[in-house]
Lab assay of single mutants.
Amino acid sequence: QSYDVTDELPLPPGWEMTFTATGQRYFLNHIEKITTWQDPRKAMNQP
């Protein structure tokens, strides 16, 4: 797995990073009650 500086940034409020039983990373948004494979920190860093 390649290193990404985004991995060091804190998640936005309400978000949690977790893993499936097979080790795949995904993200939970407790405020909007959604899950996604997309890292919400990457969207924050788009110009």
Rank of each mutant, 00 (worst) to 15 (best):
A21N: 14
F27D: 01
L28N: 04
T22A: 11
P10C: 05
G23M: 01
T35N: 03
M44D: 15
N29V: 00
R25G: 05
E16C: 07
H30I: 05
T35C: 07
Q38V: 10
K33T: 04
L28Y: 07
P13R: 11
G14W: 04
T6A: 08
L28G: 03
E32F: 15
N45Y: 15
P13M: 08
M44N: 08
Y26D: 02
L28P: 02
P47S: 10
I31F: 09
T20G: 05
R25C: 09
N29G: 02
A21F: 04
L11C: 05
N29T: 01
W15I: 01
K42F: 09
L11P: 03
R41E: 02
G23A: 02
P13A: 13
T36W: 00
P40N: 01
T20W: 00
S2K: 11
A43E: 14
L11I: 06
Q38A: 10
D4I: 08
Q46L: 13
Y26S: 03
G14F: 04
A43C: 12
M17S: 10
D7E: 06
H30G: 06
V5S: 12
L9A: 15
P13Q: 14
A21Q: 07
T18H: 07
T22H: 08
P10I: 08
Q24N: 09
K33L: 03
M17H: 05
P12M: 01
T35P: 01
P12W: 01
N29E: 00
G23V: 00
P13S: 12
N29D: 05
Y26G: 03
G14V: 02
W37T: 05
F19R: 11
G14K: 04
Q1R: 06
Q38Y: 11
G14I: 00
Q24R: 07
T18E: 12
P13Y: 10
W37I: 04
K42R: 10
G23D: 06
Q24V: 10
D7I: 08
P40F: 00
R41K: 02
T22P: 03
T36M: 04
Y26E: 03
I34Y: 08
T36E: 02
S2T: 11
Q38H: 10
S2L: 11
T18S: 15
F19M: 08
K42M: 08
P40E: 02
T22F: 06
N45I: 11
R25F: 04
Q24T: 08
E8P: 11
E8A: 13
H30K: 12
T35R: 04
R41F: 01
T22V: 05
F19K: 12
P12Q: 04
H30P: 08
E8Q: 14
L28S: 08
D7C: 08
P40I: 00
T18F: 10
Y26V: 06
Y26T: 05
R41G: 03
A43P: 14
E32H: 12
T22Y: 05
D4T: 09
W37Q: 06
Q46A: 09
A21E: 14
P40M: 00
D7Y: 07
R25D: 00
I34W: 12
P12E: 03
L11Q: 02
M17W: 05
V5K: 13
A21C: 09
D4K: 14
G23S: 03
L11G: 02
F19Q: 10
E16V: 08
D7H: 15
W15A: 00
L11N: 01
Q38L: 13
G23C: 01
P40S: 00
T36Y: 00
T20H: 04
Q38D: 09
I34K: 06
K42P: 09
L28A: 09
Y3V: 04
A21Y: 06
P10N: 09
K33A: 08
K42V: 09
E8D: 11
Y26W: 03
H30C: 06
Y26K: 04
E8S: 12
P13K: 11
Y26L: 05
L28K: 15
T6S: 13
T20C: 06
L11H: 03
I34L: 11
P12T: 02
M17P: 06
T6Q: 09
V5T: 14
T36R: 01
F19C: 07
Q46K: 09
R41Y: 00
W37H: 05
T22L: 08
M17C: 13
T20N: 11
R25Y: 07
P47L: 15
D4P: 12
A43G: 14
R25Q: 10
T18L: 12
V5E: 11
P47C: 00
W37M: 07
T35E: 05
F19L: 10
Q1G: 09
T36Q: 05
H30M: 07
Q46F: 15
L11S: 03
Q1M: 15
T18G: 14
Y26R: 04
D7Q: 08
D39G: 02
M44A: 14
Y26Q: 04
G23L: 00
P10S: 10
Q24S: 08
V5F: 13
T22R: 09
K42C: 10
Q1D: 14
H30L: 06
R25S: 08
T20Q: 00
H30R: 11
R41L: 02
G14Q: 04
A43Y: 09
P47H: 03
H30Y: 06
L9N: 14
S2F: 13
F27Y: 13
T6H: 06
N45W: 13
P12F: 00
D7M: 08
K42H: 12
L28R: 10
P12G: 04
L28F: 06
E8Y: 07
N29M: 00
R41C: 02
P10V: 08
E32Q: 15
T36P: 03
F19W: 13
M17E: 14
D4R: 09
L11T: 03
N45F: 10
S2R: 12
Y26P: 01
E32R: 14
G23R: 05
G23T: 00
P12C: 02
M44W: 09
M44E: 15
W15N: 03
L11E: 02
Q1L: 09
Q24H: 03
S2D: 15
N29I: 00
F27V: 01
Q24C: 06
A21L: 07
I34N: 06
P40C: 00
A43T: 15
K33H: 08
A21G: 12
Q1H: 02
A21W: 04
T18C: 14
K42G: 09
L28E: 04
R41V: 04
T18D: 14
I34E: 07
Q24D: 14
A43K: 14
P10T: 13
T20D: 12
R41P: 01
P10F: 06
T22D: 15
K33C: 08
Y26N: 05
W15D: 04
S2N: 15
K33Q: 09
W37S: 06
W15E: 02
M17T: 10
N45E: 10
D4E: 11
L9P: 14
T36K: 00
R41H: 02
A43M: 13
E16D: 13
A21R: 10
W37A: 05
D39E: 03
N29Q: 01
E8H: 08
T6W: 07
T22G: 12
E8F: 06
L28V: 15
N45C: 11
R25N: 04
I31W: 11
E16Y: 01
P12I: 01
P13E: 13
T35K: 05
E8R: 10
W37C: 04
D7G: 09
F27L: 01
P10R: 07
H30Q: 11
T6M: 14
R41S: 04
N45K: 12
G14L: 01
T35Y: 05
T20Y: 01
Q38E: 10
I34G: 03
M44T: 13
T6C: 12
I31P: 06
W15C: 03
T35F: 03
W37V: 06
T36S: 07
Q24Y: 05
N29R: 02
Q1V: 04
D4G: 08
A43L: 14
M44P: 12
M17N: 03
Q24P: 01
A21V: 08
G14D: 07
W37Y: 11
Q24A: 10
S2G: 13
P12N: 03
D39W: 02
T20V: 03
L9E: 13
T36I: 01
D39N: 06
E16M: 05
L9W: 11
I34M: 09
F19Y: 11
T22I: 06
D39Y: 02
D4Q: 05
F27H: 02
D4H: 08
T35S: 12
T35V: 05
M44C: 13
W37E: 07
W15V: 02
D39F: 03
F19T: 10
N29W: 00
V5H: 07
T6K: 12
G23Y: 00
G23Q: 04
V5M: 13
N45D: 11
W37N: 06
E32S: 13
A21T: 13
T20M: 06
Y3M: 15
W37R: 05
A43V: 13
Q46R: 09
P47A: 12
A43R: 13
I31G: 07
D39Q: 00
P10W: 05
E8G: 12
W15S: 02
P40K: 01
N29Y: 02
D39K: 02
P10A: 11
E32V: 08
G14E: 08
T22K: 11
T36F: 00
M17L: 12
Q1W: 10
Q46N: 12
M44K: 13
E32N: 08
Q46D: 15
G14Y: 05
L9G: 13
P10M: 08
E8I: 07
T18M: 12
Q38S: 10
F27N: 01
P40R: 00
R41N: 04
T6N: 08
Q1Y: 09
T6G: 09
E8W: 01
K33V: 01
L11D: 02
Y26A: 05
Y26C: 03
E32W: 15
F19V: 12
F19I: 14
Q38I: 14
F19A: 12
K33E: 05
T18W: 07
D7W: 04
